[in-house]
């Protein structure tokens, strides 16, 4: 297991990052050229200022009609995404790895905060799960891809909790945590997690159409 762990934090990590970065760049590039080839009638209206306005608005909790009408989901969505990004970038263990590998000094979250965020993210995922099962609309439109995305996004938090709470063999749990994180990286360009790549564009495009053509808020 020691050997496997060494591989997981070494070559596998390089592989995961490479797939994530190259895959993401390729997806965005190929989608952009598809848009340019076929949809200039839409691309022509792209407007950075209106795009940013829409992104900013939708990144503000409860600032849009949709957020207001779905309050619990809004809370969970923001809690999850904020926790995800903060922990992925600034969890102390992650900061140590950046420092260890490259000598980069990264600011780290205080451990109590990190633990709290991990619990919040896990609870949010639990809510997503319950909602996907119990809300008739969501259940009706859920596909295997949606379950996969939810599972992938949840695993790093659960394993992080297990490590922190010293449940099970610590090395195994840490290994699972590393592997689940790498799985998320690899999956981002190729599963529904790709919304991380594309939402800025779909949001900005909608903001452009509504701002520049429709003269109307898109929130």
């Amino acid at each position: 297991m020691q050997t496997f762990y060494t591989i997981a934090v070494g070559p596998l990590a390089w592989f995961a990052w490479a797939v994530f970065l190259v895959g993401s760049a390729w997806r965005i590039f190929s989608m952009a050229s598809l848009a340019k080839n076929k949809e200039m009638a839409a691309v022509a209206y792209f407007d950075t200022a209106y795009g940013m306005r829409s992104i900013a608005r939708w990144m503000t909790p409860f600032a849009t009609l949709g957020w207001q009408k779905n309050p619990v989901l809004t809370f969970a969505t923001f809690a999850f995404h904020i926790s995800f990004i903060l922990l992925a970038l600034f969890a102390q263990g992650h900061a140590i790895l950046w420092e260890y590998a490259f000598g980069m000094r990264v600011w780290a979250l205080p451990p109590q905060v990190a633990s709290a965020l991990t619990i919040i993210a896990t609870l949010s995922c639990a809510y997503f799960l319950v909602r996907r099962l119990s809300n008739s609309t969501v259940r009706f439109v859920s596909t295997p891809g949606d379950w996969l995305a939810l599972g992938l996004a949840t695993l790093p938090f659960i394993t992080a909790l297990l490590v922190r709470q010293s449940v099970g063999d610590p090395l195994l749990m840490t290994l699972l945590h590393v592997l689940s994180g790498e799985a998320v990286l690899v999956a981002i360009p190729f599963t529904r997690l790709s919304h991380a790549l594309f939402v800025p564009f779909t949001r900005a495009y909608m903001g452009s159409e509504f701002g520049a053509v429709r003269h109307c808020p898109d929130w």
């Binding site: 848009a35 076929k38 949709g66 009408k69 779905n70 969505t77 529904r192 919304h195 939402v199």
Partner: peptide, 23 residues
Amino acid sequence: GEAGARLAVYHETCMRCGMCAEA
């Protein structure tokens, strides 16, 4: 053929959250 990036991206990024049910 006729459709392009918008169809592809919308299909992929619709997170099936069902928030539109209220709309």
